[in-house]
């Protein structure tokens, strides 16, 4: 009985991915098309292409830039967002400007930042990632702080909680579901910008490597790069999910109770 359930679970989890992989394998098996090399070739190329040296020289720097830029955006976004959210006047003053900056598609920042910082070093890339990630976090923090339950803030005030304690124990936790929403949007934008920022100028990095493969028509290598990038995206999303479910466990539980589940 239990084994049967386990088997069903495994089938549900792995069934479709295996079918799709098998279909890809079979469909591309005898492929002579230069753009669609057999999956077998791609998988054989993978360990040869992404050696440890290459990972250290290309992948880690990319991820480090993403990490630094993203962390900067989270810190600045939450601090500025909380400040703006708590001050209605400041919010009214800054809202149209923030809406504009949010609406600018982040990749167009690249040419602008290239003017200031050049684009060969780390600085321009980190600034690009940080600026692109900032707006979703900032605006969602503002919304989260603004949408706090009035009963909560009133209670905190009538208990004469100090400003600092109110911030740490009422405002930030209350806003955290929205902050996480913003942080999740920012993460996918960050990954996009991590890749794009490496496509300008002479560069090293994961995105730059993939495009070099494509330009030199090293197609199986290019495919391994695409797969690696996909795996990194999946991995980052998984890490994010773990952090989120840890920190928002109270919120998820509350929602379940409200829905009567």
């Amino acid at each position: 009985m239990n084994a049967a359930r386990l088997a069903r679970r495994a089938f549900m989890l792995l069934g479709l991915p295996l079918i799709l992989l098998a279909a890809w394998w079979v469909a591309s098996a005898g492929s002579t098309s230069p753009f669609w090399p057999p999956l077998q070739t791609i998988l054989e190329t993978f360990p040869k292409t992404w050696t440890w040296d290459r990972i250290v020289s290309d992948v880690f720097p990319s991820l480090a830039r993403l990490g630094i830029g993203y962390a900067l955006a989270v810190i600045v976004g939450i601090v500025a967002g909380t400040a703006i959210g708590l001050m209605p006047r400041l919010r009214a003053l800054s809202e149209p400007v923030l809406e504009f900056f949010r609406a600018v598609p982040p990749p167009v920042l690249v040419p602008i930042i290239a003017l200031f910082a050049g684009y060969t070093g780390w600085l321009g890339k980190i600034v690009t990632i940080a600026l692109g990630c900032l707006w979703p976090i900032l605006l969602n923090t503002v919304e989260g702080v603004r949408g706090l339950e009035p009963v909560l803030t009133d209670t905190a005030r009538s208990y004469h909680l100090s400003r600092w304690r109110r911030l740490v124990f009422v405002v930030l936790p209350g806003a955290s579901p929205r902050i996480f929403t913003g942080a999740r949007q920012a993460l996918s934008i960050g990954v996009i910008l991590m890749v794009i920022s490496e496509l300008f100028g002479a560069n090293r990095g994961l995105g730059a490597a993939i495009v070099q493969f494509q330009r030199s028509f090293a197609i199986p290598q290019m495919w391994t790069g695409i797969i690696l990038l996909g795996l990194i995206g999946v991995m980052l999303a998984a890490i994010f999910k773990v952090v989120e479910s840890r920190m928002l466990a109270w919120y998820v539980g509350q929602r379940q109770i409200e829905r009567g589940e």
Partner: peptide
């Protein structure tokens, strides 16, 4: 979560 920019070379 696969970033769509991964498809650029393709």
């Amino acid at each position: 979560p696969i970033p769509s920019v991964a498809l650029i070379p393709l």
